[in-house]
Design a protein around this nucleic acid. Structure first.
Lengths: 250, 250
DNA sequence: TCGAATTTGTGCGTATGTATC
DNA sequence: GGATACATACGCACAAATTCG
C-alpha cells in the first residue's frame, strides 16, 4: 500500500491531472470510470473515489451522475485592464474593456434610495444610516451576462443634482468620473480591492455559472479630494476574467 | 441507521457547527475526538470522520494528526497593498506588507535553471526554450505558510552577473527592483494580473488550506524600458487576503 | 415501452499507518 | 514505549441517474 511517499489518492489524481493539462484528456472527454481507475491503478474503490473528488474540487472535471466524469472546458480568461489612466471616453471597466476590444455590449440598471449599512458606510466614510443611492447593474456581452455591479453614492454628494440617478439625464450611462465632473466634483483617485470566493447561488444564476464556481469581487471606491464619492462591488466569474493593473515603479 | 431524513454525518456536523458558531466551542479549542463523537452520538467511526470532514471543508476546523481537531480562528482578510509607489526599503509584496504591519516573517527559496515554457516565454517576451532562472518561494508569517511564489528571470538579463541567483550575494532577498538596479537595469513598470481559481491539492497542502478552497493568483511582471525582466506567480488563499490597488485618475 | 447494465454519489464498518503527547 | 487521535485505505451496499438494446 503505502511504500514511502504520497497517499495513493493523490498519486492517482496527479496522474489524471497530468493527462488533463497536457491535453491527452481534452475537454468533454470522459475520465476512466471509478471501476476502471480501480483496475488500471490497482487501487481500491475509495481511493479512486477520493482521486476524482480531488479533481472535482479543483474544478478540472465535473461528475455527471449515471453517465461519467467529464473534463471541463477551460475558457481562456479575458483581460480587464485597469490602468488608472483611463481613456477620455472610457467609463466603467466594462465599457473600457469593450472600447479596447471593439466589442458590443448592453446593460441594465435600477436605482433605489436606501440607508447605508455599516459596511457601505465605512467604505464611503459616512455615518451608518445616511441616505445613499444604490444602483444595480447587469452588463451583457452579446446578450450573455458577464458582470454584476452594485454601486452606492452618498446623496450628500449627488442629491438634488441632475446626476443623482446614474442612468438618467443627459449624462446617463457616462461613468462616475464624467458625472461627478458635471457637478464640479473632481474625481482624482480610485482604490480597488480584489478578493475572491465561491459564488453565491444568486450570482451564479445571473452570470450563467455552475454552483461552486469561483467569482472575483472588486470593491472599487472613487475619491475626490480625499472624500469617497462612489463605491461599488463588481462581480465576475473568475474563470472568464483576469483583472490587470499597470503601475509605475518608484 | 437512518431514522428519518438527514444523513447521520450531516446531523453530527450540524450539531458541532452550531457549537462552534454560537461560541460554545471557541477558536483553538479541540473538538471531541473521533472516538468520543462515535460514543456521544452513537454513530460509526466513518460517520464521525465524515462529519469532521464537512467542517474541515467549510474551513471551520483544522485537523492536526496525532493531536486533535481544532476550531479555527475566523480569518479576517488581510490587505495586501499594491500602490505601485513602493517604500524605498520595500521589495516584494510580502515584505512590503510586513513592513507596513510590523509583522515578522521568514521565507525559503530555491533556484534552478530551466528552459522557458510557452506561457512564461510569452510573459517575458522571449523565445520559448530560452534559459531562465526559476525561483520558488514559500513565505511564512509566524511560521505559518502564507504565500507561495514562483519567479522567472531571463538569463539574458541576469546571467553572469552577481544577482543571477535572487537569494545569493550581497543583495540576496532584496527584491527585484534593487537587484536589477545593481546591474544597471532600471525597473520602471509593473503589470499585475489578478485571477482566482480553486487551489490545487499541492498548493492547499502548502498553504494550510482544505481541498476546494479558493486561491488568488497574481501574475506579476516587472519591466525595464519596455522589456520584461522578471515575471512571477504569487499564490495566496482567497479567504485570508485581499489585494488593494490605489490608482490616480486621469 | 420496458428493462438491464453502467456509473456516479452516498453511507457505513473496519483495519492499518503515522503523528503527537 | 504506550496511549490517543487523525489520516489513509479497503470493501461493501444501495440509491439515483443515465445509457442502450
Amino acid at each position: 500500500m503505502t511504500f514511502g511517499e504520497q497517499p495513493a489518492y493523490l498519486r492517482v489524481a496527479s496522474d489524471l491531472r497530468q493527462k488533463i493539462v497536457n491535453g491527452s484528456l481534452p475537454p468533454h472527454t470522459r475520465l476512466p470510470s471509478q471501476a476502471r481507475i480501480r483496475e488500471e491503478y490497482g487501487v481500491s474503490d475509495t481511493v479512486a473515489l477520493e482521486a476524482r473528488k480531488v479533481l472535482m474540487a479543483e474544478g478540472l472535471v465535473e461528475g455527471r451522475s449515471g453517465s461519467g466524469t467529464y473534463v471541463r472546458e477551460r475558457p481562456v480568461p479575458r483581460r480587464i485592464s485597469r490602468s488608472g489612466y483611463r481613456p477620455p471616453g472610457g467609463a466603467n471597466p466594462f465599457r473600457q474593456e469593450q472600447a479596447e476590444e471593439g466589442a458590443r455590449g448592453t446593460w441594465e440598471s435600477g436605482s433605489e434610495q436606501e440607508n447605508a449599512g455599516a459596511a457601505v458606510a465605512a467604505r464611503l466614510g459616512i455615518p451608518p444610516g445616511e441616505r445613499v443611492m444604490r444602483t444595480r447593474y447587469v452588463f451583457r456581452d452579446a446578450g450573455e451576462p458577464m458582470m454584476l455591479s452594485t454601486s452606492w453614492e452618498p446623496l450628500s454628494v449627488t442629491g438634488r443634482t441632475p446626476v443623482m440617478l446614474p442612468e438618467e439625464g443627459p449624462l446617463g450611462g457616462c461613468g462616475v468620473v464624467e458625472r461627478m465632473a458635471a457637478i464640479d466634483v473632481v474625481v482624482d483617485n480610485v482604490v480597488e480591492e480584489v478578493g475572491a470566493r465561491p459564488g453565491l447561488a444568486e450570482e451564479l444564476l445571473a452570470l450563467g455559472g455552475v454552483p461552486g464556481h469561483v467569482v472575483m469581487v472588486v470593491e472599487r471606491t472613487y475619491f475626490a479630494s480625499g472624500r469617497a464619492v462612489e463605491t461599488a462591488d463588481v462581480v465576475v466569474l473568475a474563470d472568464r476574467f483576469r483583472i490587470a493593473y499597470h503601475l509605475p515603479v518608484r
